[in-house]
Design a protein around this nucleic acid. Structure first.
Lengths: 350, 350
DNA sequence: GTTAGCACTCGTCAGGTGAGACTGCTAGAG
DNA sequence: CTCTAGCAGTCTCACCTGACGAGTGCTAAC
């Protein structure tokens, strides 16, 4: 019962079992392992080993006379082993090349992330996703006001990394284009280079401070800025691609229908995915969350492979969602590659 | 065998059968029709009628001793009947109210369509979609250039109806902000109010005409405009929501797994949906395409309910995709309502 | 033209059976 | 003490079977 250290032979049997099961999708029999694992023992010995592994919770039997199937814990062991030995084989180049091709030379931030989710799907054949960093920490670069009809104004905000967002606001009274562009100039000069949240706070502070604004122009500029930045805690944007892979009829149903529904709902209500992932974005490198390790009971049969990109407060994430029985080694290297590529893109564009 | 005119009784039997089948999803027996249809005849008579209907291709039997199920032709008859009698009951108000709530007071065009697809999903419980008009015919309202780092420029184009699109272009050399804003002013004054495609042609014509542009500013403005408008035939934007409804496990699988996959792929490759719909957007009002009437063999079990909005060349579409066995009357009135609501929005915003 | 009655067809479901796949266990060999 | 061969036991799966019920088509009578 003790999950203590495994003997070398036991480890090899487990690894071979997981690999086999990932490839075939069928419970693995002792005889098959005997053939494949290449240690010179008979199937009877393997059976003893398997009985131990089952006691320790690494594998289980779907029914009495079936082969063994890895449990979440078994996958976990396998994945940790992979993550240890992977460093040398990090291969971001092909992922990065495809991403550049897909996103174009100078993509908007949204385009970059959307391309990333697509490339993740292409390379892994699972659902790919990309999550933007929270807008609050984005570095304010420029604001621009475009007059629309009547008293409506289109506000375009540019943050570092080609991160463009836009919004229509109603100013109540018509403001002449020249005033708008002067207001923009003022704001750009004053606040350029600050984090958006700080800009918002500074704007509010100034409006409070100078109750009666003698300068008409600054009054307009600050009021516009406040209205614009009000909605800055808006949900983080999320890009998802490859949901069709969930309905792949290739082999024994990869995910259950109810899981599929949950995932499709997640595509619609993307914040749910953000909440789910929030906990796993701490460390550096790739994190793998297997089956019931996350806490959404609806998504029991699913694993997440996720990596953060960017630094400090400007962190986002890319990753892949698939059935617990997925090609982890491939998924890990693809996700890792994508995270590196996105980070590099952002550094280049600064 | 002749699909000639149906007697009144026959029609009522057919209508009742279709309605019943849509409600229950089970083959409808003669006895059930006898009870429901309310014409004072026995089940034996109904059986005779059903045999005729089967000869004419309106219904079929899944197997010898089962009730009858409508064929595509049967649905068609039913829907045409609905479309005839519907006019009086057009009820756009609740759909429109929900759309305003969802989209906010001054939505960007994209937000409007995205909300429309969502509302369609909410009201119909099927996949909702909204297709933008081709950008080529949009009326050019304003252009704005926002300097980014280095020689990169963000171009924001606003077309009538809060239709904003943006693009990063690389100008090759750094252009001072003041020149950029003057270039924008020039273009706005010169081309405001023209269809985008015409603007593009005019810009190209001028560049050809005046080979050596003496005026530095105009040269910059026109070159930037050309680069911006180059990509104007880009794919039409499409918004889709409610794919999770496809995996609804409520009753006997609403659509087959392979159909589901095809639909999910369509969500990813949206132009496919545009091509599919292209043929059905001619007339006014709501069009219903049932099962194998469209020509995608993958989507045999699906029906489309679609309505165009907008006028002339500025036509887009909204609609719903669901299994052949869908609540047509509801779907039709919802789609109709959404089309009216979107059109009204655009007229208000002009 | 309509209806009652009846024979007939067909899908479904429960129950039973045999083959096949693996295992766990035990006894014996190294 | 570790490993192995052999065998009995267990479970799934595919297949068949027969009873049942639903619903029809047909026919003869109204």
């Amino acid at each position: 019962m003790t999950p203590g250290p495994l003997s070398d032979r036991t480890r090899r049997v487990l690894a071979c079992l997981v690999k086999d099961y990932i490839d075939t999708g069928e419970p693995v029999a002792s005889a098959a392992l005997c053939r494949r694992a290449g240690l010179g023992v008979s199937s009877a010995t393997i059976r003893n080993v398997l009985a131990q592994l089952e006691d320790m919770g690494y594998v289980r039997q779907p029914h009495t006379s079936a082969g063994r199937v890895p449990t979440d814990l078994g996958y976990r062991y396998y994945v940790d082993m992979l993550l240890d030995t992977r460093r040398a084989t990090r291969d971001a180049s092909s992922v990065e090349a495809r991403l550049r091709e897909q996103a174009g030379a100078a993509p908007l931030f949204d385009q970059l992330l959307s391309s990333a989710s697509h490339v993740l799907f292409e390379f892994s054949h699972h659902v790919g996703f990309a999550i933007a960093p929270s807008e609050q920490h984005a570095i304010f670069q420029r604001i621009e006001f475009v007059p629309l009809s009547g008293s409506r104004v289109l506000v375009v905000t540019v943050a570092r990394g080609n991160h463009v967002s836009q919004k229509v606001i109603d100013t109540g009274e018509e403001i002449p284009p020249s005033a708008l562009s002067q207001a923009a100039n003022y704001l750009n000069a004053e606040f350029g280079g600050m984090p958006l949240a700080d800009v918002r706070d500074a704007v509010i502070a100034r409006l409070e401070q100078e109750r009666t604004l003698y300068d008409q122009l600054r009054a307009i500029a600050l009021t516009l800025a406040r209205t614009t930045l009000e909605g800055i805690e808006t949900p983080t944007s999320v890009f998802i691609d490859g949901t069709s892979s969930l309905a792949d009829t290739g082999e024994a149903t990869p995910v259950s229908l109810s899981t599929l529904r949950t995932l499709l709902q997640m595509v619609e209500e993307k914040q749910r995915l953000v909440r789910l992932l929030d906990a796993y974005l701490e460390g550096p490198g790739v994190a793998v969350v297997i089956g019931a390790e996350h806490h959404d009971p609806q998504l029991r049969g699913c694993s997440l492979v996720v990596a953060a990109y960017g630094d400090g407060a400007r962190r986002g994430a890319v990753g892949v969602i698939g059935p617990t029985r997925m090609h982890y080694s491939r998924a890990i290297s693809v996700v890792d590659g994508a995270a590196v590529a996105v980070a590099r893109f952002l550094r280049d564009e600064n």
